[in-house]
Nucleic acid binder design. Sequence first.
DNA 1: TCTGGGGTCCTAGGACCC
DNA 2: TCTGGGGTCCTAGGACCC
Length: 393
Amino acid sequence: MDAFYASVELLRYPELKGQAVVVGGRRDHTPRDLPDGTRRYARLRDYTGRGVVTTSSYAARDLGVFSAMGLMKAALRAPDAILLPADFEAYRRHSRLFKAAVAEVAPVIEDRGIDEIYIDLSEVPGIREPVGHDPLGGIRSVAREIKNSVLKATGLTCSIGITPNKLLSKIASELDKPDGITILMPEDIETRVWPMSVRKINGIGPKAGAKLLALGIETIGQLAAASPAFLLEHFGKSYGAWLHEASHGRDNRPVVTHSEPVSISRETTFEHDLHAVHDRAELGAVFTRLCEQLAGDLQRKGYVGRTVGLKLRFEGFVTVTRDLTLDAPIDGAAELRHAAGLCLKRVDLTKRIRLLGVRIGNLSHRSDVPAATTSRKTARSDGKAAAENLPLF
DNA sequence: TCTGGGGTCCTAGGACCC
DNA sequence: TCTGGGGTCCTAGGACCC
C-alpha cells in the first residue's frame, strides 16, 4: 500500500491531499473542528517528545521526512508539516479491507504486516495469456484487476511488483511507487536490478549495507560480481551464501499462507527516563499494566506461553533482555508479573530506564493444553498483589 | 533533536542427555 | 587420566522488517 497510514488519514481529511503530512507521536494531535467549518491541525514544529515518524506522505518525503525518524528531527526539516496521531484501529480496518479485496482476485496470499502482502499469481486464470501482441498482457490485466479491486474497496492505491519470486517482487514493487505496476523478468535483472543499491534488498539493513560499502560494494551488480568465497569470508557461511544468491535475483521461498505467532509483547518508552529507586511507584504501575495488557492479548488470541521475557532500555539506548522459561505455560497477568519480576532481579538497575517491555514466547494454543497444566490465578489475586511481593519496582 | 512498538530469525555458549 | 559426537533446550544479544 502507498504511504498507508498517511493515505488512510487523507480519506478522513481530504483537504490535506498533496500536503506534507506526518503520522506519529503518542500524544493526541487530533485535528480540532473550528466553528467556521475548517479544521485546525497540529504542526510538526509544535511537537516535543520522543515520538518517531510512523508514516509520512509523499510531499513530506520530498522534504526529507521518512519513517522511523524522530519527530523532533523531522520538525527541523519540515516545521510546517501537519502532524496526525496514529489511529491503528482505522489502519487495521483498511488492512482487512484491502487484503479481502486482493483475495477476490488472487486468494493465495502471504501476510507481511499491516500494509504489505505477497501474492502467488501462478494459478490465477488467464495470467499466462498474451493480450494482443503483448506476451505479458495476462499479467498486466491481473495486476490492474487487483489494483481496481483494492481501490474500490478502500479508496487507496497500491504498488505491485510481479516477478518470478518474493525477493524480486519486493524490489519491483518499489520501482514505480505510488500507484505502480512493475513487471520484472529474469532477463531484466542485469539492467534494472544490478544498478540499484544493495540496501534495496530485503534483508540488507544498515549494518550489512555499511559493511558492504566499506568493502567497496555499493550496488547489487557489484555484489553479484563479488566471489562467493569473498562473501563467505566476510559474512559467514549462511549470510554470505544468501548475499550471493540474492544479488543474482535467486529466491525459492514459497508464499506462506498461514503462520503461527512466535511471541507476543508489550513495551513502552517513557517520556522521561525513570530510576528504579526514585521512580519505583511509577515503574511498578507501568510494569503491572504491561503485564495486564499482555495477558489480555494472550487471552483474547487464545494463547498460553512458557517463556517470559523482560526488556529494559537504559539511558544511552543500551538494551538488556532477560528470559525465564517456566515448567507450565501461563496466560495470566499475575503469573506474567511474577515471572518478569524474577527476570528483573537479574538486571543491574543503576542507570535510569528509558523503556520497559514484557514478552511471552514458547506459545501454544490454550485449547491444546490440558487445563491442569496451565496456571492462571483468578481476577482477585492479579498484578497488584504480585507487585507488592517483589522488592523491585 | 537522540532514536516507537510490534514482530521474526540467527548466532553462540552452556547445560544436559544419550 | 586430560576428555567423542550428536542432539535439544535455554539464554542473551543483535540485525532486520513493517
